[in-house]
Design a protein around this nucleic acid. Structure first.
Lengths: 243, 243, 243, 243
DNA sequence: CATGAATGAGCCTTCATTCAT
DNA sequence: TATGAATGAAGGCTCATTCAT
């Protein structure tokens, strides 16, 4: 019973190794340059061995995305219990987003590939389901905080806005700014040298605009986010490989 | 002087024709299915002729993006003079964004391709500069409105926020929500059935959060945006092929 | 002595199981889709185990053919004793051929694979010999009937024709028509809607042409063949899976 | 106008060259060993060039078959006018079959490949139609001779046999014997050293069995077939590459 | 014996790019 | 300048066979 488990462990490890080698190629060079041939050469294994792990190239991409989304989910879970005050819990989620997109920039960028329909459609439903689950659980965590705030009387949702729609706004502004920052040819020359701070300010303005209690000033907001950021950074220190 | 100008005109026209044929393929089928062979066959010209116009495939993609960004720039210019009230001018820009992403969805999607590093790096600096110029001019128009509002006393920028940084927030939330709406496998099932309305609400909340005068209620906000949308729709009727 | 014989029995059974699984794949899908991987999965044994039974893929095909040819041999043996009148015994062989090609169409089609030189050359001489033996015994049975007829004075072989050469004619016409009927894209549209009846008629004409006694008319010929067909169908009922 | 025609001629020639190289591989080694890679190497052209001529491997096989069937059709046409006596015209067709299968054995064997459904289904309908046409015209020529004989009173078709069904018998016996002779592992050891002569004898017996006038003896039959064989051999001398 | 992961040559096909005409 | 045949590297994938366990 010892021998098979060792072999299985080796196989598991190789699967991780494949993903580890594939990630930077997909990120830095794109989908086409990520070829099975090249991967096999880097692995110093035969091409066929790759296909014992993943039935096709697309599944590798999805597996990468799943790894990334699971990390983000863990960060969200950790953030969601970082305080008892709903507004602060949302700030902690914001800090998790920042940490994820900045210090796990690779993971963040990988997630984008599942939005490619060609890749999505060629992959197995098993992996597709995993991804949908991750997304759903992230959303649940955050919308749960909103509902909690409403229940505590910290926040009133007006104009028929649902908790999920409110979250969607924060999601969009964070996601959009990160993509733009990562890919816009010239954000700095456009007059936006410090995009993350700008986004923090917008989130702060939004929260106050919604009347979410307790409202502090922007300095408090920044201080809180930095604190939560440090907290998460410690918890996930071993996974923050970038930068 | 007559002959060469005719020839130049012919070349210009053929260039436009190439782009016209390439656009739907890139959009509907992706980068790989857009092949020089196929383009040449559709053009009823030889493949070599294509290479007289564009030194490689990537430049075609960039040229497409430039066409698209120029259309957006025109829309921004039109929107920026749709009112004399700064807040309304910004709303008009927002309406332009909505119109562009929804009714010129093809153009919006094309812009994404320049974010692909493989394509960007293989293209000429000449075309790269054109793109950067377009982006800069868009930003100038919008940040100009913000500065105008500050000058008129409608808005105070606090916490050292610059006009460009403020605009970046609106840009991010609009861009982010559009990409998410276009590509997320399950936005509806996540509890966000009407993303555009949610985004409008967030922009409304943001503007009020910044204290930008004159503040109306959300119904006024919506009414104004619809009005500007109709205005622009008429002006650009011949370019709104989608929907 | 008990243990090894049980083991041997198990091995025999597994060998039969392999062939049982391989046959429909080879028939319905061809040589390439018959892969060792697939066979092993269906068997629920490891691929290596397959190689303990058959040294390569080609041998499996030959083993299949041998199974089929042995069934045919049995049918020929049964047919050859279905009457005491030589001409009728030959008719019974004809009926056996019809039954084999029509109601054991799978077996008939399998035999064709050994005519593929790639497969033949890669297989062991042991299995090649088995096939040659089968063929030889079939031929002996039928040529024996001819010689019997000559001995009884029912038939005179003229022009130096040997019994085997005479049989070869019947073999060729039956085999040829079956292959053509099975594979010609357009036999019906060529004006041959009922190939089996045409072949019966040609055999009838041939027998009469040779002056083989006793000569009846075509209706008698058909009646006799149907009778022998029914007889064999009963004897081999459990092996006639098709139709 | 001279240059393009030269180029076109070169292309035509290369197409013929491809087929010339492909034929022996398909024949001697089978379908799988005939690979585009190998063909390109033998051609000393790049693989892509092959694909400028044939859109896929299957089309090469069909093109080979068409070449072969066209040769046979020409032989049939020549044979069908070699005499004015219907029975002799049929003998001439028989001689054409012999010549084709023996001296153009490669062509004969190639035709078999179109019976492979995988290949047939992957090929273009254009080439499929060509093949069907060839088959139909061959059948027309021969069944025309039968009908001519009936019209002249040389032959009576009894038992509801149609001209096409009668021809089918001759087709089957000739085709069957040729396939068996070409592929049976041991025809000689089975006691059939001179298969062609046996087939001639059977055809002779069949013709007489049908009462087709004028009936000579077997020696006459052989003499006539040899005469027609020589005639055709001269006419098609440059195409009889084998043996 | 049974296992099944590893192998790696080989398959068919695509396509951006070149260059002689 | 226009042409389009030729190129040939590269791509994703398959599968018979081996061999350490």
């Amino acid at each position: 019973m010892v021998t098979p488990s060792r072999k299985q462990r080796e196989i598991q490890e190789r699967e991780a190794q494949i993903l580890k080698l594939a990630r930077p190629i997909l990120l830095r060079e794109g989908y086409q340059p990520l070829s099975m041939d090249r991967l096999a050469t880097l692995m110093e294994y035969a091409k066929g061995t790759l296909y014992n792990h993943f039935p096709n190239k697309e599944e590798i991409v999805l597996a990468l995305a799943i790894e990334s989304m699971e990390l983000r989910l863990k960060m969200f879970e950790a953030a969601s219990i970082a305080s008892r005050v709903p507004r602060e819990r949302l700030l902690a989620i914001g800090a998790a987003c920042e940490l994820y997109t900045q210090s796990c920039a690779d993971h963040f960028a990988i997630e984008d590939w599942i939005r490619n329909s060609t890749i999505w459609n060629k992959s197995s439903t098993a992996r597709q389901d995993l991804i949908r689950q991750c997304e759903g659980r992230c959303m649940s965590i955050v919308s749960g905080i909103v509902r909690d705030a409403v229940a505590h009387g910290d926040l009133k949702l007006e104009n028929d806005l649902t908790a999920e729609e409110m979250i969607f706004g924060f999601w969009a502004i964070n996601y959009g700014s990160q993509v733009l920052a990562a890919t816009s040819p010239s954000l700095v020359s456009l007059g936006v040298p410090n995009a993350p701070r700008a986004i923090r300010h917008h989130c702060f303005t939004l929260l106050n605009g919604f009347g979410w209690q307790p409202m502090g000033d922007f300095a408090d907001h920044i201080k809180a986010m930095d604190r939560f950021g440090d907290l998460l950074r410690k918890q996930f220190a071993d996974q923050l490989t970038n930068r």
